[in-house]
Design a protein around this nucleic acid. Sequence first.
DNA 1: TAGGCCATCTGGTCCT
DNA 2: AGGACCAGATGGCCTA
Length: 189
Amino acid sequence: MRSLEVSTPWQEEEDVEVEDIELEKHAMNGRDDLTESSSDEATGRKRRKHGGSASSGSASSGTTTRRRKSCISARERNLRRLESNERERMRMHSLNDAFEQLREVIPHIKMERKLSKIETLTLAKNYIMALTNVICEMRGEEKHYTFQDVEDEEVELETTEEPNREQNNNSMFQQNLENHQENAMVNSR
DNA sequence: TAGGCCATCTGGTCCT
DNA sequence: AGGACCAGATGGCCTA
């Protein structure tokens, strides 16, 4: 951590800003660990040991001139940044919660590790397609979609990752849906 | 050790 | 004006 240097007003503001960011980032990390450690233990969520990058490469370099337009103090800017970071963190956590909920409702072959985000989205899409097919079938219409593991011509589905597992899951979708379909028929009698 | 996945920070843009 | 959303950058962890 650098010490504060006394210099020209502009320089001083820049220096103070850098200093504040460093200071508050550490403060934030500490608070982060305190406030979120309990939920992290529950979810197994990983924590940053250090804050992220001090700057986002090229993006930050062009900001100094723009910054000077604003009449708010460096400290105020830092505060806003920290608040913004906090909101972004919360937003990403809620996004991750949504992913978790999605994982729970998608039938898939249980694995030792949880589904990645891209896998979750891909399977969700396939599941929706399978459900759509079932609805079409029940209505006596033609199926809308065909899957990769079906020999027929392919519609949609341009997935690239881990086709084997996906095929298994797609087969499972069909099987599950057929079972549900049968149950629905039985129950409706 | 390389590559995949992820969390976080950050600045820009859009929206209310 | 301020918050939400987004994408780029960065670095840590894990696995093959």
